[in-house]
Design a protein around this nucleic acid. Structure first.
Lengths: 148, 148
DNA sequence: CGCAATTAGGTTGTGCACAATATGTTTGTT
DNA sequence: AACAAACATATTGTGCACAACCTAATTGCG
């Protein structure tokens, strides 16, 4: 307390960011449970639903900013649940191609209204949400640069 | 893609929030490694440094919005490292009192400049950071309400 | 007092994150 | 062709998060 004002929990961005992220994830978790999905599994599907074509693990990781150590077990669970197919690329056996299965596409209807359920409980106006998204995006660009 | 614009990864707040939080945590992780701390351990210490008096696990959890299942192992590691003392409250044996040890207080000097190292790489002005903190705080208030 | 209900913290199990490392593949370069 | 370097993914190990459950201590109330 005495002389480190910059070390106050509320003086920094990190803690509100961390707490808000966990709070939002918690909301999603409860809404996604009815579809049998975890939040990272849902994020994987959001990314995979964006393309009709198969996508490699590396491309998915670049989109979600997650590495293979995180994605592989998540994708295996999605495969075990029948939502995603995984197969080696015949043209380059190092790569694994991911493809949403028909039941995986059907899931999209079941979770289509989840974002509205989240937004309604967030206490921000549409304008504020847009502002927040803009600030976070700018921050992500800055954080992408290697540490100088 | 065809008919679910609300399910775009970038259309929602959740993904930028999640990605930004992980990116910031990653920055802290590298800076905190020299002090032998993880990011959640650092958060616990930030909260404990805010009070000269012993604090219970429950009070710490309320401050950090973390439950005992998360805090207990983190606190045990901080105790094993000699930064924090844990003892049952004699007045109420259900409670555990947490107290920063002398070496725990010394750590505060070693990490005093960590927030500056983070802020410099974040790409936001001071005003933007304040704006972001305000939006996140308002969001946290909204997310604290039970789901209606 | 006697005892059900509440409270505080700990334990267990599942699922991420991420660093470090390993393995198999492909690509250059000679 | 031979082989070193680069590449894509998988594996392993540590440390969270959080739900569900458990145990012991305390509190209220008749």
């Amino acid at each position: 307390m005495t002389s480190f004002p910059q070390l106050g929990l509320d003086a920094q961005l990190c803690f509100p960011l961390y707490a808000a992220s966990r709070a939002v994830t918690r909301r999603y978790t409860t809404l996604l449970a009815q579809a049998g999905l975890t939040y990272p599994q849902y994020l994987c599907l959001l990314a995979l639903w964006e393309s009709e074509e198969p996508v490699t693990v590396g491309e998915l990781g670049a989109r979600l900013r997650l590495d293979s150590g995180t994605l592989t077990p998540v994708l295996k669970r999605l495969e075990a649940a029948g939502h995603v197919g995984r197969r080696r690329d015949p043209a380059d056996e190092r790569r694994v191609l991911l493809e949403v299965t028909p039941t995986g596409w059907e899931l999209r209807d079941r979770v289509a209204d989840v974002p509205l359920g989240i937004a309604s409980g967030m206490g921000l106006t549409e304008a504020e949400a847009g502002q927040l998204r803009g600030l976070l995006d700018r921050m992500l660009v800055g954080l992408d640069e290697p540490v100088t």
